[in-house]
Design a protein around this nucleic acid. Structure first.
Lengths: 245, 245
DNA sequence: GTCTATAACGAGATAGAC
DNA sequence: GTCTATCTCGTTATAGAC
C-alpha cells in the first residue's frame, strides 16, 4: 500500500515536472501572455482536460512557474553566498549581486516572468511572497551583519520620509536604522534596474563590458547601504577595489 | 489639387492616429504580445487589409507605438525640465526623475512596452534610437552643466573598467570624466529600476509612501553623479534636503 | 481514489473563397 | 469587403481504466 502510494506520488511528481518544463519552453518561445494549457498538453501527448488534475487552471500553472523561478533565483544566490559566508559583508554583497545577474542572464524568460511586465489578466497570489522574498532577505542579512553594533548610518532622511522609513524598518529589519533600511530597499530595486537594462537590451550600443560595469555598479550600491568599511578598521580600503566574484 | 492633397493627407493623419489609439487600448487590455492588426481593424470598423495602407506589418505598428511612447516620455520630462531650467542641477535632476516616474504611473502599459519585457518575436529597429535617447540626453545635459569646469569626479574606477569607462565617455559626453559618465549610466538604469519596481508591483507590502521614497532615492542618485554641491559654495546644503518637485 | 479520454460550451482568431 | 468554414482557447461534465 505504501509502495503503491509512493509509485503514484512519484509519477505525479514526474508528470508535474514535465508539464512545467514544457510550459517553460513555451514561455521562452511565445511569452507568458500566450502560455496555453492546450498547447502544453498537445506537446506532451496528453489531452487538455488531463492537465487539470495537476493544475486547476492556467493561472495556477503560471503561479507555479513564478514560484519556481523565484526559488531558482533564490537558490542560486543563496548557494553563491554560502561560498563566501565568512567573507566581509561587502564581498558577500557583491557575490550575491553577481549571482543574481548571472541567474538572470541564464534564465532570461523566467527573469521576465518575475521582474518584467505583468502578465495581462493575471494577478499573482500571496503564495508567491515567500519565494519572492528570498534574495531580499539575503541582502538584509548581509547588511544586518555589517551593521552589528556599529552606528554607521549615513544619509539623513528628509522629514517627509521619516515615518515611512520607520515603518519599513519595523517591517523588514527592526535592528537596522531606518536610514539604512530605506537605502537597502532602494538598492534592491536599483540592482534589478541594472540587470533588467542589460537583459532587455537598453545597454545595446551603450555599455559593452557589462560584466565589469555591473561589478562596479553593484559595489557602489554596497557603499549606499553602509558596507564600505566592513570590519576592517585601520588602513581601510579606499575606493572600490575588486571584491566581487 | 493642393487642397485635395491636403485633405487626403489630413485624413491619412487622422486614420493613422485612430489606429494607434485603438492599438494602445489593446495594449492596455491584452498586452503587446497579443496586439493584432485584425482586432484593431475590427474595432475601427475597417477591414484588416485596409490597415496595411497605414502600417505595412504588425511590427511596424508596434514600432510606431514604441517611438510614440518614448517621445511622450521625452516630452513630459523635457517640459518638466524646462520649468526649472535655471535652477541648480540637483533640482533639475530631481525634477526630471519625478517627471519620468509620473509619466510611467500615468502610462503603465506604454512604460511596459518600452522598458518592460521584450515582445516575443519582435526586435526594435534602429529608428527607435533617437526617441529612446531623449531622457538620457536630458540627464547628461544636467550633469554636464553641473560639472562645468569643476573637477568633482568622485568614485575611483576599478582597473578593469577604465577602458570601458573611457569608451562610454567618448561616446556619450566627451567633456565629462569617465568616472562620472559611468556613474551616470548606472544611475540611469537604477532610476528605471525604482520606477519599474513600483509600477510592476514589487513594492506592494514593502513601500507605502512611494512618492516620498522615490524622491529621496532619486536625490541619492543625484549624489552619485556629483550633483550634491552644485553651484553653492559657502554654507553648503548638508544631507539630502527637499529639492525635488 | 486517481488518473485519462471524450465531448462539448462559448468565445475568439484565422484563412480562403466569393 | 464580406462570409463562412475551420481553427484556437480555457474550462467543465461525464464516463471509464487502473
Amino acid at each position: 500500500m505504501s509502495t503503491a502510494r509512493g509509485a503514484r506520488a512519484r509519477a505525479r511528481i514526474e508528470v508535474t515536472a514535465a508539464i512545467k518544463d514544457e510550459a517553460r519552453r513555451q514561455l521562452a518561445a511565445e511569452g507568458a501572455a500566450k502560455l496555453s494549457l492546450r498547447a502544453v498538453a498537445r506537446e506532451l501527448g496528453m489531452v487538455s482536460s488531463a492537465l487539470y488534475r495537476y493544475f486547476p487552471s492556467r493561472d495556477d500553472l503560471l503561479t507555479a512557474l513564478i514560484i519556481d523561478a523565484y526559488d531558482s533565483l533564490g537558490e542560486s544566490t543563496e548557494s553563491a553566498h554560502a561560498g563566501v559566508a565568512d567573507a566581509a559583508p561587502r564581498e558577500r554583497w557583491n557575490t550575491v549581486c553577481a549571482a543574481a545577474r548571472h541567474w538572470a542572464l541564464d534564465h532570461p524568460h523566467e527573469y521576465a516572468l518575475i521582474y518584467g511586465s505583468p502578465v495581462p489578466g493575471y494577478s499573482a497570489p500571496e503564495t508567491t511572497i515567500p519565494a519572492a522574498s528570498r534574495v531580499g532577505l539575503l541582502l538584509i542579512g548581509i547588511v544586518r551583519d555589517a551593521h552589528q553594533g556599529k552606528g554607521v548610518a549615513r544619509p539623513r532622511l528628509p522629514a517627509d520620509l521619516k515615518a515611512e522609513a520607520k515603518r519599513m524598518a519595523a517591517d523588514l529589519s527592526p535592528d537596522l536604522p531606518p536610514e539604512v533600511v530605506t537605502a537597502l530597499v532602494a538598492a534592491w530595486a536599483q540592482l534589478y534596474g541594472l540587470i533588467g537594462f542589460e537583459l532587455f537590451g537598453q545597454f545595446n550600443r551603450v555599455v559593452e563590458d557589462r560584466e565589469a560595469f555591473f561589478r562596479h555598479a553593484a559595489d557602489q550600491l554596497a557603499h549606499g547601504v553602509g558596507l564600505v568599511f566592513p570590519q576592517v578598521t585601520g588602513t581601510a580600503s579606499k575606493g572600490p577595489g575588486g571584491s566581487g566574484v
